[in-house]
Design a protein around this nucleic acid. Structure first.
Lengths: 111, 111
DNA sequence: AGAATAGTTAGCCATGACGGAAACTATTGG
DNA sequence: CCAATAGTTTCCGTCATGGCTAACTATTCT
């Protein structure tokens, strides 16, 4: 399983910050401008902008500037890929547990 | 949606490193000792141990020392919670797209 | 007992992350 | 044209991260 992926690195790192997760949550409801995104937080604009950049570099969001307004929107792929990575692991792990249990059952039957 | 969760912070941060993801992948196949875990990497033991600690603090793995050997194993909950967080978001996001498309369809029928 | 093994601690260094203030650019409303 | 708005750049301070080596403890093998 591909663990050497800078993509996954960036996505997980991006999601490790509560402000960035909140931005993602917010953008799931629809596109927002940078200052709309900043409203809920007690944080200076430049700091928020950094978070936006991190999210953008991770591929989780995209943004476009029209006039003086930058509009941010969520991007499906990164989030889905990340979910897929985790899902594969949970699955592997559960398969193993199943095998283990099957083994225990066989032992029981023998004795 | 709970974005102020130090648990999620730590889990995502833990998964943002390729070595730590490789450890998780490895442990999905079964418990391993610290030195078994270190084998695939060109990394000093103390460095690897730090990764193990980070994973342990995130709740992704647990470990127990018997004699001079510390055995690490995967812990289901953290990984599942993380998957759940992402899944909720992908879902929210897809619901929104569905609504949008339904809206477009209604407009089409009108004209 | 002595040597080898497994892990641990301590301390060091370079780099990157996250926060801020101040000053600047580019649009837009009056 | 001027003021207000929206975002951006620069620079700074502090703390966390990831790597190392060296030295140490605790077990286990001979």
């Amino acid at each position: 399983m591909a663990n050497y992926s800078p993509d996954l690195d960036r996505t997980f790192a991006a999601l490790s910050d509560p402000i960035r997760r909140a931005i993602v949550t917010r953008l799931c409801e629809g596109p927002r401008s940078v200052s709309e995104l900043s409203e809920p937080f007690e944080i200076a604009l430049p700091s928020l902008l950094k978070h936006v950049r991190v999210l953008e570099e991770s591929g989780l969001i995209s943004s476009e500037k029209t006039g003086r307004v930058r509009t941010c929107r969520i991007e499906r792929r990164a989030l889905q890929q990340t979910e897929a990575w985790i899902h594969r692991h949970v699955a592997t792990w559960e398969r193993r547990l199943d095998r283990l249990e099957a083994h225990v059952q066989r032992m029981k039957r023998k004795h």
